[in-house]
């Protein structure tokens, strides 16, 4: 599904990633761990096409397509979804308006017709229940005045609406209490199919108790320095990152 080869990327002239290699096949869940500043968020931002990051070397292919040649919105309609670490508030743009534009853009990319207004509202209602999100939130402006937990839940709700094939959960667990974390993680689990792949970025084992990764990678100084199975995450939880650093 996603293939990253020798990826180098920088922001404002400063190199953050220097040679990331990562292959994610259909249906696989990969966890990406690492200390602050290791480049985790840079990697996710580069995958979704954040304009501030410059790719200086390397390739990313998504289902055989050259991802780096695609615009942000083309990557999204191709099925890449990112749950943001800090979802932005957009005052004045209603969730309905916003989701309708997004859902129809995705449908268009899949060669489907635009949803009729009534069908769209029905879909909103159904998906809302999946992530236990209040109808009041859905009637407000995008993320405006939402609490931290509500914002994260709203991200998963949007995932439910857009039915992506590849999801990035960028520190979805940060700022969530245990209950909120469970609801968000269970929502994600309910939504994923056998084909859905994901890249789960996190500091802690906590989230991985709910979302079980097939592979765990450690990112350090802009490169993946260690990969392993789920047991690696547990080892990091117990021993921290320093032992990996020392090995370098």
């Amino acid at each position: 599904m996603l293939e990253i080869r020798n990826l180098h990327a920088s922001i404002a002239g400063k190199e953050i990633l220097n040679g990331v290699d990562l292959t994610i096949r259909d249906g696989e869940i990969h966890a990406l761990m690492g200390t602050n500043g290791a480049g985790k968020s840079t990697l996710s931002n580069v995958i979704v096409g954040h304009p501030a990051y410059e790719v200086t070397q390397g390739t990313i292919t998504f289902n055989g397509q050259d991802l780096l040649a695609m615009k942000t919105e083309e990557r999204a309609t191709a099925g890449i979804f990112m749950s943001f670490q800090q979802p932005i508030e957009i005052p004045g743009v209603s969730m309905q308006q916003f989701m309708r534009a997004a859902v129809n853009a995705r449908r268009k990319a899949l060669g489907k017709e635009e949803l009729k207004a009534t069908d769209f509202l029905k879909m909103m209602r159904e998906r809302r229940k999946l992530v236990e999100i209040d109808s009041k939130l859905v009637n407000r402006s995008v993320n405006e005045g939402f609490s931290g937990g509500e914002k994260k839940r709203n991200e998963i709700f949007q995932m439910a609406m857009l039915e992506p094939t590849f999801c990035i959960l960028d520190e979805t667990d940060s700022g969530l209490d245990v209950d909120a974390l469970r609801i968000v993680a269970e929502g994600f689990n309910r939504l994923r199919t056998d084909e859905t792949s994901a890249l789960v970025i996190t500091h802690y084992q906590r989230l991985l108790d709910y979302i079980h990764p097939d592979f765990v990678h450690v990112l350090l100084d802009g490169r993946i320095v260690k990969s392993g199975g789920p047991e690696l995450a547990q080892e990091i939880e117990d021993r921290g990152f320093d032992w990996i650093k020392e090995k370098q």
Binding site: V48, G49, H50, P51, K71, T72, E73, A76, T77, F81, M82, F84, P87, I88, E89, I90, P91, G92, V93, Q97, F98, A101, A102, A105, R106, A109, S141, V142, Q158, L162
Partner: peptide
Amino acid sequence: LDEQALFYMQQRGISADEARLLLKFAF
């Protein structure tokens, strides 16, 4: 226009033009 909001919308698959329009409209 808020660059971050534009990016957020684009990540959801909304084209840059449409996203700009929605933001102007909201404004």
